[in-house]
């Protein structure tokens, strides 16, 4: 894509993204992965998107996408206030059918795709020519994977015996 085409697409994209932000709430998200308790940064909608992403990025038999999304929510709450709004924006963009149509040729929201198609969306963000999309993919990937593997529940499955017992004295 040359620069001019990119700019045109960028402008059209901006308009569609703006429209999609307005229409987003008309689309119901998946019923799975509802939050279990209070949220500090995310709203119930972006929470479900994040948990759906975690369900694809984290392939571990003991993984719990809802627990992962809650852990990310707590982590972001300790960061700069801007981090929370940026994460919500990113998740809304990731979910958006209109943005998906523009960027990846899909109309369905991310949470309503099959697991295989969801993996294709993640790969499309990863392999994008746009640094911003690659950064968004990296952020979501790292937040979900770090939140999961910080938990001692993962230790056995990766062959980590855990810290040594300290004896007083």
């Amino acid at each position: 894509m040359d620069r001019r085409a990119f700019l045109q697409r960028g402008l059209v994209g901006g308009a569609i993204l703006a429209a999609s932000a307005c229409t987003l709430h008309a689309w119901p998200v998946q019923d799975r992965y509802q939050p279990q308790g209070n949220l500090q940064c995310l709203d119930p909608r972006t929470f479900v998107v994040l948990a759906s992403i975690a369900a694809r990025t984290v392939q571990d038999p003991v993984a719990d996408p809802v627990a992962i999304a809650h852990a990310v929510d707590r982590t972001i709450a300790l960061s700069a206030p801007e981090a929370a709004s940026e994460l919500r924006q990113l998740l809304n963009l990731f979910e958006s059918g209109l943005a998906g149509l523009l960027l990846d040729g899909r109309l369905r929201p991310f949470t309503r795709l099959t697991p295989d198609r969801q993996d294709q969306v993640l790969a499309a963000w990863r392999d994008s020519r746009l640094v911003l999309r690659r950064a968004g993919y990296t952020a979501l990937r790292k937040l979900t994977l770090a939140a999961h593997y910080a938990s001692p529940t993962t230790w056995e499955g990766v062959g980590y015996p855990g810290p040594p017992e300290l004896v007083e004295g």
Binding site: Q59, A146, G157
Partner: peptide
């Protein structure tokens, strides 16, 4: 440690898990 490796290892899904184990 597990989280440190999870951050350093790239990819997602099965590809990432294949490094973790």
């Amino acid at each position: 440690h597990p989280m440190m490796l999870a951050l350093a290892a790239t990819g997602f899904g099965e590809a990432h898990r294949s490094t973790m184990v």
